[in-house]
Design a protein around this nucleic acid. Structure first.
Lengths: 196, 196
DNA sequence: TTAATTTATTAACATACATCAACGCTTGCA
DNA sequence: TGCAAGCGTTGATGTATGTTAATAAATTAA
């Protein structure tokens, strides 16, 4: 199962087998059941998860009980609560597994200790963080500028894979619209011969 | 002028005068006029700016010519285009100075070279990046879950300083509403005795 | 200082999306 | 096997916010 993590790293940095073994010796895997709650709003967690298999999400629940999805994390993605990670503060969000999931538990100091074995881990870390920012800026821009239909089309192009795996109401919740609206958006797109 | 940067670093890490001098010797300051365009959509820039004085913003312009503000950067904030920084790609956004601005030019490899002099720069860098992600998740959550009024109230509490410095139509553009809507929101809040 | 431009407000009207409710379809579990 | 629960669709209706336009106030330029 660690092979997937090794492959992930090798695609993004140069790392020897020895370095990987040293680094990976600190890591444990864990599994979550479908719909298992991993972290609730108000709890504190300093862990990051690297998803080996399955699908997780982080989301908020507002006063009316409505759910708003902050992030999807399928295989090869990272997910964590930054409040806990940075300041040992309570999480603003919930986290759960949408599918049965296997994940690596990445402790808070992982990149720091890993960099002691292979300095390139520092660059990998900052590159990934910058990338996350880039994606979030893009999403914010869409939320500010685009219609529900445009946001859905963008989602499908960006995550064709997720579109099939995730129930529609979750996609709606990620896009910031109701499931009913998404249903209508899809109907309109079908008339315009939009595929998948 | 570099004093401000030194104070900024000293608040966030331990750094000696010698280390600072070494690190700062690579840096140049630059100034921008009010309304000066710093970067346009389609151009490539690998620079980051650290704002010493003044106020900058990054924003997109959609097909209808409407402006959508991605980020405000007042004194003590960083601003950059991640497309250029990460991949030497063209920027999705524009960047300009809202006020006359003095900024440090931070080259792409700054944190890497600085870490050679003071390793704590690595931690500072990742902490700041994680913090940026935290703030953006919070903003996304508000865009998904909150009304225009709630978002405005949140903005005013989070950036009381900016509320006074920035024209209303820019705040509207940051919140994802029209200036007319913001005007109405403010009127309603005034009736509810909301202050500032 | 006047003139020109930008910014903020207000009103009438338009629309994208939400809400509420009803109805089949699937799914999972008793 | 059957039945409850969840999911997706559709329709009728409601509402927050957008659009357009006019005007006033503030800022900038000449």
């Amino acid at each position: 199962m660690l092979d997937k993590f090794k492959a992930y790293l090798q695609q993004r940095m140069s790392i020897t087998d020895e370095q990987f073994d040293l680094v990976a010796s600190h890591l444990k895997t864990t599994t979550f059941l479908k719909n298992e709650l991993v972290l609730s709003q108000g709890e504190t967690s300093t862990r990051t998860y690297f998803i080996l298999d399955g699908l997780m999400r982080s989301y908020s629940v507002d006063e009316k009980g409505k759910t708003h999805i902050i992030q999807f994390a399928p295989e090869g993605w990272w997910i964590s609560d930054r409040n806990g990670l940075l300041n040992n503060e309570a999480s603003d969000f919930n986290m759960d597994a949408i599918e049965p999931t296997t994940a690596l538990i990445i402790p808070k100091d992982f990149f720091c200790t890993a960099a002691a074995h292979a300095p390139e881990f520092n660059l990998l870390n900052t590159t990934m963080l910058n990338n996350a920012i880039r994606f979030m800026q893009r999403r914010i821009n869409l939320l500010l500028a685009a219609t529900a239909e445009e946001r859905y089309v963008d989602f499908v192009k960006l995550y064709p894979n997720l579109t099939l795996r995730v129930p529609q109401w979750m996609i709606a919740s990620y896009l910031g619209i109701t499931p009913e609206s998404l249903s209508r958006v899809r109907k309109d797109l079908a008339h315009k011969h939009f595929k998948v």
